[in-house]
Design a binder for these strands. Structure first.
Lengths: 128, 128
DNA sequence: CAAGATTGACTGCTCAATCTTT
DNA sequence: AAAGATTGAGCAGTCAATCTTG
């Protein structure tokens, strides 16, 4: 709980991003073409579609992403990471990883970290 | 993230309590006299004082706690768990523990659970 | 003025209802 | 009718400002 809060505060202060924002950018950044349908993106980050819509609204206003209507299925839209969006992600990633390190990993032994990794995998990942 | 969400949803649906509510009840229940100053309670559950005030507002309306002005320092107030509040906590605890078991512990080996416990202790607890 | 606590205003998230395209 | 997506309304949590007592 304080880990999440700490990370969120740092992202907010240094980059004006929420954890939800970070999740979206992070997922898009790792896609081939840096694009994904809204629906799949929502599932990927384990958020309700409506939450993704809000997040995307904000990010589109800030030109971190653009929405393009899907080519062959006009119901869907695709979120595409812009160049600025990718750059913002790379910057935020530094803060994020530093936060994890400082608030979490630094207090554990190498062995414990490895064990945690396995436990995490057993549960089913999902959390980047 | 989905663990917290799942737990929160279950508590909400079955007992109409948030995770914040649960934290307060849980902390009060383990105090001698089932009472604690607002300020200490806020620190104990790692929440800002203002957040605790909101939670306590709701719980006092539902008669799960009462607020009493502190005996020798009239600045402070004490939150006291009522009989109904304690009963509500005991019921919610079943849901909470079941949630942890199902969503988390059931997927890990006994050894992994023990290792996690140690890692958790190394980080510094704080999370009941 | 410090500490304890509360309030006003705002943000982020979520559900249920809705709109559009298949 | 079902899938993709958005919108309206409401809630939990938070900060900064405020009130009160020591």
């Amino acid at each position: 709980v304080p880990l999440r809060r700490g990370l969120g505060d740092a992202l907010k202060q240094e980059h004006d991003l929420t954890l939800g924002d970070y999740g979206v950018l992070s997922r898009l950044a790792e896609q081939p073409g840096r694009r994904l349908r809204m629906s799949e993106l929502a599932d990927a980050i384990l958020q309700p579609r409506s939450s993704l819509t809000r997040i995307a609204d904000g990010q589109e206003r800030r030109a971190l992403i653009v929405r393009e209507p899907s080519a062959e299925d006009a119901r869907g839209a695709e979120a595409v990471l812009t160049k600025a969006g990718y750059a913002a992600f790379r910057r935020a990633q530094l803060t994020y990883h530093r936060g994890i390190r400082e608030r979490f990993l630094a207090r554990l032994s190498d062995e414990q970290i490895a064990q945690l990794g396995e436990a995490w995998a057993a549960i089913g990942d999902s959390g980047r």
